[in-house]
Design a protein around this nucleic acid. Structure first.
Lengths: 149, 149
DNA sequence: TATTGTTATACTCTATAACTATA
DNA sequence: TATAGTTATAGAGTATAACAATA
């Protein structure tokens, strides 16, 4: 029984706010994506793969911001579910080219809709303007990291 | 070698944004607090304890949004560093009353300043107005969780 | 020598389970 | 019976290390 009765922890540092919001988002995301048999990271990977030309595993890993070992396991799961296919690159036989299957593409589109709807609900307390303002700020922070990093 | 060369992962879902911003914040926080020998969670606990009347461990846990078992370990660490003291409640001998020591109070004040400065730097790309707007939004999301939760 | 992918391992953070003691 | 605290354990998520294949 988690002693998390309080939905609004009273501490208010930035780290604390982010941690708890993310925790709730992770749960909402898992719920929203459960019907599709994937999690948020897998959906993100599918989205990257749908974006353009064929990617190797390290390229996708870089775009997701995860390690190549994490990526290997991630692709294992997606392949097991028939959502992607690996094939060796003819140009560079060290590389695995990962491609969406038809099933993967269909899953992506349906899951993306569910995710979008989930995010809309999640940000609803902020109003439409507040929600897009928040997203702009978060994108700015990711795009324009502070000098410390 | 983490393949996180890309500071700005190209995926842009809300979950992805939060995850990577939080990851960077955790690092910046660890750096900022290292001189004080505590982490962000320990600082948050000290801040709760400084807030007012004596708290039991579960009360602090509730305010931090963590489990009581996590709390026990957390207090172990703080006590080992001489920042807090446990004593049994006379009213209810099941409860540990946790109190800041003088050293804990001094550590709190210095660490709070460092944290504040770190957050200021972290949010600098947003400008002063953007930063306070973001904090307002995050507080609103924590205070006013969507109905799904 | 350096890179890609894989596997096994380890680490961090947190929760669950089981226990003691108190109420 | 229920709550507070402790401890040991387990789980998720991710990284590090070591290896084979390839460049």
């Amino acid at each position: 029984m988690p002693s998390e009765q309080l939905h609004a922890p009273l501490e208010s540092g930035l780290g604390h706010l982010l941690k708890h919001i993310q925790r709730r988002l992770v749960r909402a995301s898992a719920e929203a994506l459960a019907p599709f048999g994937i999690d948020g990271q897998e959906l993100a990977a599918l989205a990257v793969l749908a974006a353009g030309h064929p990617f190797s595993q390290v390229e996708v890993a870089g775009r997701l911001g995860v390690d190549r070992t994490t990526m290997a396991v991630l692709v294992d799961g997606l392949e097991d579910h028939g959502l992607v296919e690996r094939r060796r690159s003819a140009q560079d036989r060290r590389k695995n080219i990962v491609q969406l299957t038809a099933e993967g593409r269909a899953c992506l589109h349906r899951a993306e809709r569910a995710r979008h709807e989930m995010e809309r609900r999640f940000l609803a307390p902020l109003g439409e303007e507040g929600a897009s303002s928040l997203l702009r700020s978060l994108r700015a922070l990711v795009t324009d990291p502070p000098v410390t990093a």
